[in-house]
């Protein structure tokens, strides 16, 4: 209840909202803390870039999931399938166009990558649309059934990948220009990781631009906060939701492409394997928050890389620990999304 003194009438200045910088500072703080532990600067740089690259890829894969959840309270446990399918879509391009992949021309290599990205995104976007209609819509608003049925969708889709692509792992080396590493000082940085960081930043920037500068973006942000009011203003939130679901699936597909060249080996279960990290990321970031998802991805990946080097046996346990610590600090995640 607002009990304002009369003097602070309607035009009194509201308390300025403080930008919440603390979570952002966590990333450099974590990196700085790791430096003395790792010991050598080149080793630290390699690990940090590796962590950032992995974080960017996780962000690309996770961002759609967190938005879909924020907007409609739908958590797609089958999201990992889109990652796998995005990764397998790579074979549609890379195998027939092997000459371009191996060509000693950066232009050709980039063209192949772009082609992979477009094909994967179109494929997973279309599939996302079908998945939303067939799997998610009938159980709308029923959480238990939603979890079960999206899980079921994942099982079936994973099996279908087996049917279509065979059971053996497929190897997909990245295009020639992105193999090997460059030396920065004494640190060897893999080229592909630099590419991953660049793509991740581009996707994040594009998302921020859409969310902050377009009417659709405003609607999505408003819908995450209060979907009912968006409807009362005359917008069909269902359509918006389908759009975001398709876009999120396409992003997962793009993430799958990046992940495929990173791992260089394709298995149908690869999407589900990253899902654990993705869940940790969106819980840590605050369910529904894109910025939180971005920071969460970086934190999780950096922690995984540093501990992978310092104490490899507890690497995944360290992420659970990270999640617990952050939830103890902020029970709703780094950037809790205001809800009604």
């Amino acid at each position: 209840m607002t009990t304002m003194p009369a003097a602070r009438s309607a035009t009194a200045a509201p308390p300025a909202i403080k930008r919440d910088w603390l979570p952002i500072l966590l990333v450099p703080a974590l990196a700085a803390a790791a430096l003395p532990l790792v010991g050598s600067f080149p080793g630290w740089l390699t690990l940090t870039v590796a962590g950032l690259a992995m974080g960017m890829m996780i962000f690309i894969m996770a961002s759609g999931l967190t938005l879909v959840f924020g907007l409609m309270d739908v958590l797609n446990f089958g999201h990992g399938v889109f990652i796998s399918i995005g990764a397998f879509a790579v074979t549609l391009i890379v195998l027939p166009l092997a000459t371009l992949v191996q060509a000693d021309s950066v232009l050709m290599n980039v063209a192949v990558l772009l082609l992979c990205a477009v094909v994967a995104m179109v494929l997973t976007g279309a599939l996302g649309w079908a998945f939303e209609r067939a799997i998610v819509r009938p159980v709308y608003g029923q959480h238990l059934k939603q979890i079960l049925v999206t899980m079921g969708g994942m099982i079936v889709a994973e099996q279908l990948i087996h049917v279509l692509w065979g059971a053996d792992p497929i190897s997909v080396p990245p295009p020639e220009a992105f193999r090997g590493s460059v030396l920065i000082g004494e640190a060897a940085i893999e080229r592909y990781r630099i590419l991953a960081v660049a793509v991740g930043l581009a996707v994040f920037a594009a998302m921020l631009l859409v969310l902050n500068r377009t009417k659709i973006g405003l609607l999505i942000r408003a819908g995450v906060e209060n979907g009912e009011m968006v409807e009362a203003l005359g917008y069909r939130i269902r359509r918006l939701f389908v759009g975001v679901f398709v876009a999120g699936s396409a992003l997962a597909g793009l993430g799958g492409v990046m992940w495929a060249f990173y791992r260089q080996t394709l298995t149908p279960g690869m999407g589900m394997e990253v899902m654990v990290l993705i869940f940790i990321v969106i819980i840590v970031g605050g369910l529904g928050s894109v910025g939180g998802c971005f920071l969460g991805s970086l934190l999780v990946a950096l922690v995984a890389n540093y501990t992978g080097f310092l104490a490899p046996k507890v690497a995944l346990g360290s992420n659970i620990l990270l999640m617990v610590l952050i939830l103890m600090w902020r029970p709703q995640g780094l950037y809790p999304v205001a809800k009604r």
């Binding site: 009417k215 405003l218 609607l219 408003a222 906060e225 009912e228 009011m229």
Partner: peptide, 14 residues
């Protein structure tokens, strides 16, 4: 039903 995350202008635009 204010969208707290959006500015006053953005609320009116929507």
């Amino acid at each position: 039903g204010i969208f707290a995350d959006l500015t006053v202008r953005e609320n009116l635009v929507l």
